[in-house]
């Protein structure tokens, strides 16, 4: 946690400084008191302040990382998270081009294939069922205009 907190503190300070530089360009005062730049400026100053506190707190903690057993699966864990997050991003982008139904179908099929060990036709029919259920309940019953792709649905 110590290293993570040092990193967190530094990121917060850097982000806060960036936010200060941006907020300083907005009017700090207007004719009736604090202006549109007031709140963002102080919020970013508090962020820098909080980041510094976190950094100091972390640096004062004793180093004990050496004794902690390393998690051999760490990379694999992060990899899984990244894969799922990436797949979600791809699906969101895919929705615009392929259309909602196809993107969701592909996403669900890939996820089930990745997470569960079912036979291919079960995976596919589950994916088909889920994407259809979404399409029919949202687009047809609730009349939500879901994104349509090149195929028209």
């Amino acid at each position: 946690m110590r290293r993570a907190d040092i990193a967190g503190g530094l990121i917060t300070i850097l982000f806060g400084i960036f936010a200060i530089s941006q907020a300083a360009q907005i009017d700090y005062w207007w004719k009736f008191g604090p202006g549109p730049g007031f709140l963002p400026l102080w919020a970013s100053i508090v962020m820098v302040f909080g980041g510094c506190l976190l950094l100091i707190q972390a640096l004062r903690k004793p180093k004990q990382d050496k004794h902690r057993p390393k998690d051999p699966q760490q990379i694999k864990r992060i990899g899984n998270v990244a894969a799922v997050a990436g797949l979600t991003v791809l699906t969101a982008v895919g929705m615009v081009y392929l259309g909602f139904s196809i993107a969701i179908f592909l996403f669900v099929a890939l996820m089930i294939h990745m997470l569960g060990k079912y036979r291919w036709y079960i995976t596919l029919s589950m994916a088909l069922f889920i994407s259809l259920a979404f399409y029919i309940s949202f687009a047809k019953w609730l009349q939500v205009p879901l994104p349509e792709g090149i195929f028209g649905f």
Binding site: Y121, I122, L124, M126, F129, I136
Partner: peptide
């Protein structure tokens, strides 16, 4: 699962009509 698949297929045709 297999039956579900067949039902799903039928539903595809329905919503293609929509």
């Amino acid at each position: 699962g297999f039956r579900t698949g067949l039902i799903s297929l039928a539903m595809v045709l329905v919503f293609a009509g929509f």
